[in-house]
């Protein structure tokens, strides 16, 4: 494994913030590497998940929040299931992702765009309109032709509808979005 570059000063406030938001104690990690050994995405991560844990213990906020790893993590729960110290590693990754989003430091813009199209669709219709998500994502990301060959396959089997179905309580769902955004603004 590469040596870890501890280029930043330890950001103690960041460690405390992660502790508080995740309810987890990163210092319990003794670097056994079990989480990384089972992580199906580790070859695509810029920092393996156990290295993220080490970087977290030493408060390397910038490195962590701008890492690709926190966005390529699929929340598969393998690391949490296998950590001998019972650290909920998946939940820490999740918390770091939320923090990166909040601070505008997202390294994997396409993934964020995809999630955002999903949430847009949900806010509008109350349920997910698959076609709408795909088109929304293509439009915003500029990857217009990606997956184009899949279209005819799903269409010919009548699996994807071209028109959204909006539930009666869509406004109630949108309310959840609005209340959350207001609250987030207040706590800013």
């Amino acid at each position: 494994m590469d040596t870890i570059n501890l280029s930043e000063k330890t950001d103690w406030a960041f460690i405390e913030e992660v502790k508080k938001e995740s309810g987890q104690n990163p210092s319990l990690c003794y670097q056994c590497g079990n989480c990384t050994a089972g992580c199906p995405y580790t070859q695509y991560f810029d920092y393996p998940v156990s290295v993220i844990m080490r970087l977290l213990q030493s408060g390397q906020k910038e490195t962590i929040l701008t890492s690709k790893a926190i966005w390529l993590c699929a929340t598969c729960e393998t690391c949490t299931t296998r950590c001998p110290c019972e650290v909920d590693v998946t939940h820490i990754m999740d918390t770091l992702r939320i923090m990166a989003r909040r601070e505008g430091k997202v390294s994997e813009k396409d993934i964020q765009l995809f999630y955002d199209s999903f949430l847009d669709s949900m806010k509008k219709h109350g349920r997910i309109f698959e076609m709408g998500i795909l088109m929304g994502y293509k439009f915003k990301s500029g990857h217009l032709m990606g997956d184009a060959e899949l279209g005819p396959k799903v269409m010919s089997r009548g699996k994807i509808s071209l028109f959204p179905k909006t539930i009666k309580g869509a406004d109630k769902v949108a309310q959840i979005f609005n209340r959350f955004q207001e609250k987030a603004k207040k706590h800013g």
């Binding site: 929340t75 999740d94 918390t95 992702r97 939320i98 989003r101 964020q112 995809f114 999630y115 955002d116 999903f118 949430l119 949900m122 109350g126 349920r127 997910i128 539930i167 009666k168 309580g169 869509a170 109630k172 769902v173 959350f180 987030a184």
Partner: peptide, 16 residues
């Protein structure tokens, strides 16, 4: 009138 569960994208925004 059930609605979407929020799935993966929602928990990249906020746990609450």
């Amino acid at each position: 009138d059930w609605s979407c569960c929020g799935s993966t994208p929602a928990h990249t925004v906020d746990h609450v």
